[in-house]
Nucleic acid binder design. Structure first.
Lengths: 166, 166
DNA sequence: CATAAAAATTTTATGCTTGAAATATATCGT
DNA sequence: ACGATATATTTCAAGCATAAAATTTTTATG
């Protein structure tokens, strides 16, 4: 639609040739990556020093906090979009720490449900509050009024082949 | 949108109460993370199937491609913002594969410089071309005219405490 | 019912990542 | 020259991550 006529000197915000657009996208990706890695690094450090835990553990707890009745291992790895084998290890350690329990599933001895213990729910709530505050600080360079817009653009990226449940 | 009660005068598109802004930032962060992870996963898969290599290896090669005379291990880990120990392992494997060489530094027997071999440079060029094409495809949901703007916002995030050399 | 196919999970092998400890070398102050 | 400190790198232990193979149990089919 808005392509052909980069003709005008004004070039009112429109168009770029393909090669330039490709380079621009590459630079954008590098910045996206840089910003994300930066925030992740800060969060990891905060989780480590503040709660002696990790981001992946927090992610597992967050998923289970939302699912009061617990989730099966396969549901968990699907929600978190990580491999099955990976979840096994993280859950093992969380169980050892008394944060999670494995509950056998009736009528299917292959599966187990995983659920937060009461201690786990408590710990999660404390961490979630800090987490939100950390993000608030880390992203405060962003114009809040632009958040929705930015958000929409990112949605476009994530949706590529990722059937978008949130 | 800016919350119904944007009060009145002055505050044109501004404002949201703090709690709402905080939640909005949290949601934004989750999308940022989701978009980044999605692109990363696709790239990893492409590198694996297309070149039997990994993103971290590509990153090392990219850094060294730009530095024709090579980099010391510490410079490499600083540029890539990863730990020293991490770089050691990745470089070890790249050396085994004939992609990198370690060169002793004159007058300082503690340090070594790492450089791409000719084979390494060749391989990198092929991979870089594909990489750019992959990114172009993955980010094509993004309005190219918004790239600069989006980019600026991300810059804000990355700059927090990250003295911004690129 | 038997057995093949499917499903849920774990195990294995490999590699990335960190932070901390260890090693080796260089530099500086006295 | 000596010893303390700083610098460059590697090693180590633990955890995260994937893909692929293996295990166990369920379900479907003949």
């Amino acid at each position: 639609m808005s392509d052909k006529l980069a003709a005008q000197p004004g070039m009112a915000g429109t168009s770029m040739n393909d090669a330039a657009a490709s380079k621009a996208r590459l630079r954008l990706w590098l910045k996206l990556l840089k910003a994300t890695k930066h925030v992740e690094a800060e969060l990891r450090e905060n989780f480590r020093t503040g709660f002696d835990t990790t981001l992946p553990r927090f992610d597992v707890m967050a998923a289970l906090y939302r699912a009061e009745q617990g989730l099966k291992m396969s549901e968990l790895s699907s929600v978190l979009r990580v491999s099955n084998g990976n979840v096994t290890g993280i859950v093992d350690r969380l169980v050892d720490d008394g944060i999670l329990v494995r509950i056998p599933v009736d009528n299917d001895r292959r599966a187990t449900t995983v659920r937060l213990t009461n201690a786990g729910r408590e710990q999660f709530e404390a961490m979630a509050a800090s987490h939100e505050a950390w993000i608030d600080t880390l992203l405060d360079g962003i114009d809040v009024n632009e958040v929705q817009h930015l958000s929409d653009q990112l949605e476009c990226i994530a949706r590529k082949s990722t059937k978008g449940e949130d």
